[in-house]
Design a protein around this nucleic acid. Sequence first.
DNA 1: CTGTTAGCGCGTTCAG
DNA 2: CTGAACGCGCTAACAG
Lengths: 335, 335
Amino acid sequence: MKRPTIMDIARRAGVSKGAVSMALNGQPGVSEATRRRILQVAQELDWHPNNAARALSAARAGAIGLVLARPARTLGVEPFFFQLISGLQAELSERRIALLLQVVDDHVAEMELYRQWWSERRVDGVFVIDLRAQDERVRLLEKLGLPALVIGGPGHHGELPSVWADDAHGMRSIVTHLTGLGHKRIARVAGLPELLHTQRRTAAFREATRGLAGWTVSTDYSGEQGAEATRRLLAAPEPPTAIVYDNDVMAVAGVAVAAELGVPVPERLSVVAWDDSPLCQLLHPQLTALTRDTFAFGARAARALLDVLDGAGGGDLEDHVPELVARESTAPPAQ
Amino acid sequence: MKRPTIMDIARRAGVSKGAVSMALNGQPGVSEATRRRILQVAQELDWHPNNAARALSAARAGAIGLVLARPARTLGVEPFFFQLISGLQAELSERRIALLLQVVDDHVAEMELYRQWWSERRVDGVFVIDLRAQDERVRLLEKLGLPALVIGGPGHHGELPSVWADDAHGMRSIVTHLTGLGHKRIARVAGLPELLHTQRRTAAFREATRGLAGWTVSTDYSGEQGAEATRRLLAAPEPPTAIVYDNDVMAVAGVAVAAELGVPVPERLSVVAWDDSPLCQLLHPQLTALTRDTFAFGARAARALLDVLDGAGGGDLEDHVPELVARESTAPPAQ
DNA sequence: CTGTTAGCGCGTTCAG
DNA sequence: CTGAACGCGCTAACAG
């Protein structure tokens, strides 16, 4: 009743260990008849490969790592992460590869973990998120030779392969939507300014709002800072008539602040959220949002990393373009 | 420059493989001097144990599994999960044990995964969440002999060890708060009714509201259903003056619905959220909520499972009592 | 007590 | 198709 090994199958099928291995792996070297018999016996014994043994002989861990280094309080991005992880993993599990998840405080801990994982061969590769300009993690990963894929990566010229979305396009569609409604004073409440994708969006925003009054304020992605930024923006002598938020949680916080200040949305202030979530549809007014299929994005990222591990791929892979969903929180500016 | 093995250390230190192993593991059998020399060499070579090899010889995977089987759309519980996972993992990583996370559609897939993980010895144990009455997973886990710990478990008489919080106490503190304010008509928007912890809360709520008008409606934890339930409650001939929501997202949705219907919170309707989150503090009014230290809860759960794996422990472990934080969304009922 | 040797764990691979 | 060795670390039995 103990776990059967290949030797058990071999004995019972009257063949050698090697033959069983080939049969089980669909390798040539055994006759069809023997193969069937062996598979039959394996079935009977309910044999399953021991992962550790496989990993040892294959010199592969059968696992991919993902480190979340955002501080815990920056909870705003969760819906995104949850979807992303689901997607990553849907793809990985097809290939029976595990996802190792670890939450750490900062990049220092994250890098330490990469060293550890790789030195112990706990993972075959890692996903890297929230890249910064001159990110030290990139250097480390390259030095270590730990295969990595950057999610939402640099877009171009990256040292590491990456999968990314066309932020510029998304930003244009938002601004076009707002200007189409007649807005001329558009503010943006951005996420962490050191992140590359924030910078890309900022550049795209600047470009798209050329000729208008458009300005960006930075936050750490948290609802608190989103609220605070909104408060400041609305207190200005010439407040914006529309605000674009870099995530859904800040948008929600912004709407709450507007309500608190007696600024009706969308009559006096239009609001757009980058990243959709059920939350956006629960509020009143429902939030106009840029939706992207984060699950699919994750799946693509996983496939891309697997390709890299298989020796194929590399380079950049552009994801599908996000789509703007106009709901109730955007309207022509007052008067 | 290739990964050094124990043999490399042995050669370089002029001793045998076995000696190195003992030295490295702090086992007796080598002199202090030799041990130091060996450790020195290991350091120089930057040796790290190969996880697969260790797992193979120790017959342990060095990993714990966690399956999330909630349907993806039930996003309401995410803040909770994120905290929980962080907590689990903070504790596991201390012991260099990995957390394998997998998201699946339903319990069938979840159970299939348990079989697979265990048959391949991918994990040493698993965390089980959202237990139901007569949960089929429990039977499977016992049949397999896969060590498991139920999170938010049955509380008592469970077949599997569990860690749980005193829901009854939390519920009492909520109801006491509301009745203290003068409320006599209290409704509750509950989560999935088949979950044991929902049932526990329902029972506690019934008990605590004895003598008052108190009633519970069920949802799937999603914001949509929370909104829908709120709509129905407020449309009743004698609507409640206070509503208790089983999670934060439904509470947020409920407040939005109240606003939409022109029911001011807290003047005409008091709202309490079970589970706090930054969200609760961002809205206006800020939500009165039952906060629990989910991170710590996760850490305790992890420790409990590790104890089980070490042969110790078992049984139930009660977590700290959640605490009610009164904010702006609760007030005496109108007139 | 200090250290060595042999062999295990489990699946893969390759010369024969 | 078989036999043997390998990957890497652990450990029991044994010798100095």
